[in-house]
Amino acid sequence: MAAEKSSIKIITLIAADGSVFEVEPNIVKEMKTVQSYIDELDQNTVSIPLPNVFGNDLAMIIEYCKKHASEEETKEAKEEFDFEFVKRMKSDDKLRLLQAASYLNMESFLQFMAKAIAAEIENQSVEFVRDYFQIESDFTPEEEAELRKENEWAFK
């Protein structure tokens, strides 16, 4: 069984929009959702549909995984890459990538995205965050009053 698995050379990932990505097995190690497919299948080549991830996002995730899986890259080069990666993402990208990371069950990429989103919202007003995540306030008037109290700080 183990010998058969190691003979898998190429993994084919099919995104929601039909775009196809061929990657080496070490790239998808971080994607636990994909990995569990591979472990179940008993074939030399596998092709895995990912109906919840768009092609553009999958391309970015694969780029991230490739950089971080590489043994030739230094820690500094990876940090530099992360820095540029965050800069390149638009607000919408961040949310879709967070969701994709959650769906693919990628622990370290999920952490990375959560940090990027925290940085995006931390200096912003509640209204901004609601708009950003397209969330409507669903508080009752009593809860609203409680919130207002929490946000108002009295100083001696």
Partner: peptide, 16 residues
């Protein structure tokens, strides 16, 4: 990843 107490309060003010 939110660094400050104020950010946490704000995060909790978004929805129930």
């Amino acid at each position: 990843f939110l660094q400050s107490e104020l950010y946490i309060i704000r995060f909790r003010s978004v929805c129930s």
